[in-house]
Amino acid sequence: MSPVSPADALLAVRDLVVRYGSFVAVDHVSFDIAAGETLALVGPSGCGKSSTAAAVLQLRRPDGGEVWFDGRELTALDERALRPLRPAMQPVFQDPYGSLSPRCRVRDAVAEPLRVQGRWDAERGPARVAELLDLVGLDPAYGDRRPHELSGGQCQRAGIARALAGEPRLLVLDEPVSALDPSLRAGVLNLLADLQERLGLGYLFICHDMAVVRHFSDRVVEMRDGKIVDER
C-alpha cells in the first residue's frame, strides 16, 4: 500500500507525535493518502483524531515525525515557507456557521483566501467566486447573503467553496456533516464525492458515523489513546 517513498504520496505522515505538556495526544501515527483517495480517521473523542488533523495542516506544529505533502516535508519548513503551500491543504469544519464570519457576505468569505494569497484579480475575481459557488451547488445569488440567511447545508457548501478557492489538493474534513440536519447530509456528502471525482482531491475524513465512513472511504484508520489500533 505505502508508496516507495513518502515523497511520492499526496500526503504521507510518518511517526507523527503531538504532545500537550506531558500528555501524548498523538503517538507515532503513520499513514498515506493518494490523490483521489479518502482515508477515514475514526475513534472515540479524545483519541487524537483532531490533533492529528491539526498537525497535518501544520495548524499545530507537531512535536515529532514527518508530514510529507506533495513531495515536501512540512515540519522542516518555517511559517514563511509554509504559507504558499497552505492553500493546497484546506480544512472543512463541523459547524457550518462557526466556520464563516457572521458579518461577512458569502462572496467575500469565498474571495478572502484569494485576497490573502495576493491572487485576487479585480476583473476576474467575481466570476471566479461565482464559479466556486456554482461548483458547490449554490446559486451565485447567495453570494450576497450572510451566513445566518443560509440553511446549515448551504452554509456548509459555502465553507467548502471557500476551501476550494485556493485550488487545494487535500481537504481535511472534520465531521463535515455531523452538525447538519438529516435531510441535508446526503446532499453534502454527494457534493464531496463529486468534487473528489472531478478535481482528484485527497480527503482526510474524520467522522464518527460508521455507516457514512464505510460508504464514503477507501480506507479506515482507527485511533485510540493517540495510537493507530486498526487499519482496514
Binding site: 440553511s151 446549515g152 447545508g153 448551504q154 440536519d181 438529516p182 435531510s183 441535508l184 447530509r185 446526503a186 446532499g187 456528502l189 454527494n190 464525492a193 463529486d194 458515523d209 455507516a211 457514512v212 464505510r214 460508504h215 464514503f216
Partner: peptide, 28 residues
C-alpha cells in the same frame, strides 16, 4: 427521502460503485 439518504449499512463493493447517495433536494 430521509430513510433513502442513509448510507447503506454495507461496504461498497470493490471497483468503486458511485458514492452518490439518494438525497432530498433543497432545504427545510
Amino acid at each position: 427521502g430521509l430513510l433513502a439518504s442513509l448510507p447503506p449499512d454495507a461496504p461498497l463493493p470493490a471497483g468503486g460503485r458511485s458514492r452518490r447517495l439518494p438525497a432530498i433536494a433543497g432545504a427545510p
